[in-house]
Computed example of a mutant assay.
Amino acid sequence: MAENSSVLITGASAGIGAVYADRFARRGHNLILVARDTARLNTLAEKLHTQYGILAEVLPADLTSPVEVATVARRLREDARIGVLVNNAGMSLSGTFLTQSEADINRMVAVNLSAVLTLAHAAAVGFAAKGLGSIINLSSVVGLAPELGMSVYGATKAFVLYLSQGLDLELSPQGVYVQAVLPAATRTEIWERSGVDINTVTGVMDAGDMVDAALVGYDRRESVTIPSLHPEELWAHHEQARQAMLAEFRHEHPASRYLKNNGD
């Protein structure tokens, strides 16, 4: 990553996105801050410029809108100064699959999945052409845990994890690094917006601690970073088991457990 590269951050007005903005500004990077709330973006941009002397540009966009996502994607394609994309914007919903409305589900999919995919593609094409660049995609541990009961939210985050791992394998030979960050419960406004009282949840990590840990993984060029996972070997075992299955997928006959007995 070029020392003077700019960083484009979605969902930058608060929470995890605002912390990423602060940390990259502290490292001397100019910023392009993307979110819906122009006033909050302007306040953050002015603060970071005053504190760190960097340039912080505001790019207001509602990532539920394909037109506005396309505007951000165009900026990623056309601005050669951008060397890092932080795909952070996301939303969650209260309730269950049966109680959530189709309209709300589609809005969440638009932000958590479609926008992430569109912006990652826009960044990747330019980064690969230069042979340099980084994409940080915010997934979630919920994408590994259907037991948590957040079916659609978890599915979008599982998509982001798979996409990130696949892109890291595909793009790393071309000089592009892709990191999936999987926070667990983190103290941000997403809880209030989804109707959950954060004070009823245990084991909630501070957003600053989460981002600082994620950036350690970033500096180490980890493909997957899970800040709250203490026994690192558990993820290693997960990956070993997954990879061990790969060779077993190539059989022309079904596994014996799926064969009917002669008497059936």
Rank of each mutant, 00 (worst) to 15 (best):
S13K: 08
V34G: 08
A35E: 05
A39V: 09
R40N: 12
E46K: 15
K47Y: 07
L48N: 07
Q51H: 10
L55G: 07
L55F: 02
D62Q: 10
P66K: 01
P66N: 02
V67H: 10
V69E: 04
V69F: 01
I82M: 03
G83T: 02
S92A: 15
G95Q: 05
T96E: 02
L98D: 09
T99R: 10
Q100P: 03
A103W: 07
A110P: 00
A110D: 04
N112H: 12
L119S: 03
A122G: 08
A123L: 04
A124E: 00
A124S: 06
G131R: 02
L132K: 03
L138V: 15
S139E: 02
S139K: 00
S140L: 11
V141C: 13
L144P: 00
A145S: 03
G149T: 06
M150Y: 03
G154Y: 03
T156W: 07
F159G: 06
F159S: 05
L171D: 06
S172E: 07
P173G: 02
V181W: 00
P183I: 06
R187S: 08
E189R: 13
S194Y: 01
V196D: 11
N199R: 07
T200I: 04
G208V: 02
V216C: 11
G217Y: 06
D219V: 01
S223D: 13
P231W: 10
E232F: 12
E232C: 04
A241V: 13
A241L: 15
R242Y: 03
A247K: 09
F249G: 05
R250D: 06
R250W: 10
H251P: 00
H253P: 00
P254K: 05
G263A: 09
D264H: 12
